[in-house]
Amino acid sequence: MSSNDSIEALIELMARLPGLGPRSARRAVLHLIRKRGPLLSPLADAMRQVADSARECLNCGNIGTADICDICTSNKRATGQICVVEDVGDLWAMERAGVFKGRYHVLGGTLSALDSVGPEELRIPRLIDRIPAEEVTEVILALNATVDGVTTAHYIADRLQGQVRLTSLAQGVPIGGELDYLDDGTITAALNARKEIL
């Protein structure tokens, strides 16, 4: 393979990444080649390391470099609460906010009759096993506010009814949101969940 072929192969692979197309991938590769020393080599090393070590946590489904992720092994995390999220991206979003100090459980999707995704395809049985094993007292269902997300939340709530306290995230106006730009479903949910001003 000539050197040009390997660059073309790199461009083709980069173009498959989310947010990049063939033109932006070409630009990114060109930039990496120009910054070979400070950027390309460390990036290649980092990618190799991640490719060798990245795996799903056997306990919660988070992505880490060990069989059990940092969150599950951390002593600083509260053990009584589990926050259930749909995807690792949602877990990272919760961690960015930095307000939740418990542990997580990543389902890996939502129930979908049309796509034949049932409870066994998700990590629902593992979640049920974790409740007694980790002495969980509250399960926070932080699933997306979509029809599929809420359907999945109801299914999990049915399975865990009576075992733990079940809560879900509130729905309503986002911080900095303007009513005029909100869809009517969000406005309805926000109005239904209105609270007294103290």
């Binding site: 809420v150 359907t151 009517d184």
Partner: peptide
Amino acid sequence: MRSRAAAAMSSRLALA
């Protein structure tokens, strides 16, 4: 034209 998701999500029976 009309979103029915909010009405559906308001009750378990409606969503089902």
